[in-house]
Amino acid sequence: MIYRVFVNYKKGILDPEAEAIKKTAKRMGFKSMKNISKGKFFDIEISEKKAGLEEIRNLSEELLSNPVIENFKILKK
């Protein structure tokens, strides 16, 4: 089974990379772009036997994301 964990910045955290992408996109002519945010995701394959979700949640909280600045979301694939 594969879980996909999405991690992105919380609202209000300046993401200079996203800002730079936005600037370039506008220059390319994407005038309608209001905002862009950037995140990352992890695909985690686990053996069927283990319950999974709870573990994945802990992992996301303690390792994959930093609660001070990031949110995460878990999706079952």
Partner: peptide, 17 residues
């Protein structure tokens, strides 16, 4: 120290990247 929560806050990528 911030990642293990001994200190407040977080250190983000520099503003100029």
């Amino acid at each position: 120290l911030t990642e293990c929560k001994l200190l407040e806050g977080s250190l983000l990528v520099n503003k100029n990247q």
